[in-house]
């Protein structure tokens, strides 16, 4: 369990570092997705702390069920994350007409405050 948790946090960290160090806008968005994968996995790990059995209650079945609440909650977050990702990629497509390389440095050089 501890190793699993460490792996999840490593995923979040790697994703965050990716958004920092990748120079390309698409790569930054992908790194953000890696990070959100890590966060989603963390919710699943938290849900599995009490047990891993699918939380569908049947009379007379006494097993260690997984906690349904974090799973239900993260489902919403997955949908929102997906739609934001899609929206950003559409924006990037529009932007790529003006900046074919999509290098963040070039875009910021032209659009500095």
């Amino acid at each position: 369990m501890v190793i699993l948790e460490a792996g999840v946090f490593a995923t979040i960290l790697v994703g965050f570092l990716g958004t920092l160090f990748k120079g390309n806008l698409i790569m930054k968005i992908m790194a953000m997705d890696v990070m959100s994968t890590g966060v989603i996995a963390y919710y699943v790990v938290v849900a599995a702390k009490g047990g891993v059995f699918t939380p569908i209650w049947l009379p007379g079945r006494a097993v260690a069920y997984a906690d349904p609440v974090p799973q239900a909650v993260i489902l919403t977050a997955i949908v929102i994350g997906l739609s934001i990702q899609a929206l950003m990629l559409v924006g990037v497509m529009k932007l790529s007409r003006y900046y074919p390389t999509l290098a963040v440095r070039d875009i910021e050089l032209k659009n500095s405050p």
Binding site: M88, G91, L95
Partner: peptide, 13 residues
Amino acid sequence: TERVIWVGLRYLL
């Protein structure tokens, strides 16, 4: 325009 799309993307990210 390119500028507002970039500013919006930056905000969203």
